[in-house]
């Protein structure tokens, strides 16, 4: 019958407490100083940022002694322009998001591209991190798949990497 009860409305709401690890605390402190830290695996030399406290490939623990500072600047190797109406993103404006490969590493970090019109975004651009502001000494809560502690990326204004250089970087990214 048309007036039958066909649905049940409910809201699921849960609070989670997440005590940070030592590595996470040091990472957060570094973000507050606009520095980017990573752990270098003593066996395979892969870099992890934020530091995980272990290398999942070699299954070895990493600690403060494996901590190094990496450049918060790099080259835009890929990007997309989002339609916020379709992706349910807060803020509601069309925005570009991209992958920046950090200088001297094989790390690509995803984030919003700031200070450049979506139509002008192109691979090879030199970018630097736009940092998030800490709230009471901790990173604000945020979901999603992007970089941690880095709001996004803005152009440094330096000359672009060439197409060949970008190809090299992409090749490097694919070397598992």
């Amino acid at each position: 019958m048309s007036d039958d009860v066909k649905v049940l409305n409910s809201v699921v709401s849960l609070d989670y407490e997440r005590p940070p690890t030592r590595a996470a605390r040091r990472y957060t402190e570094a973000v507050g100083e606009k520095r980017l830290i990573a752990h270098r695996c003593p066996e395979c030399e892969r870099l992890y940022t934020p530091p995980k406290g272990y290398c999942p490939v070699c299954v070895v623990l990493t600690t403060d002694e494996h901590e190094i500072e990496v450049s918060p600047e790099g080259v835009l190797v890929s990007y997309t322009v989002t339609n916020p109406d379709k992706l349910h993103q807060q803020g509601g404006k069309t925005s570009a998001r991209g992958d920046v490969m950090l200088d001297g590493t094989r790390i690509t970090l995803m984030g919003e591209l700031d200070g450049v019109e979506a139509a002008d975004v192109h691979t090879g651009m030199r970018m630097r991190a736009v940092w998030v502001e800490l709230e009471d000494g901790r990173l604000p809560s945020s979901g999603g798949w992007g970089a941690v502690g880095i709001k996004g990326w803005e152009p440094t204004g330096e000359p672009d990497a060439s197409r060949e250089e970008v190809q090299e970087l992409l090749k490097k990214a694919g070397e598992s």
């Binding site: 890929s78 997309t80 992706l87 807060q90 992958d99 995803m110 945020s142 979901g143 999603g144 992409l170």
Partner: peptide, 27 residues
């Protein structure tokens, strides 16, 4: 569920996959 997968202000599955697709196209 697209709110879950959309990933909020940091971008989620769609953004990550779209970005990897551009890598494929460029390569």
């Amino acid at each position: 569920t697209s709110r879950i997968l959309g990933g909020g202000s940091r971008g989620g599955a769609g953004v990550a996959f779209a970005s990897s697709i551009r890598q494929y196209i460029e390569k």
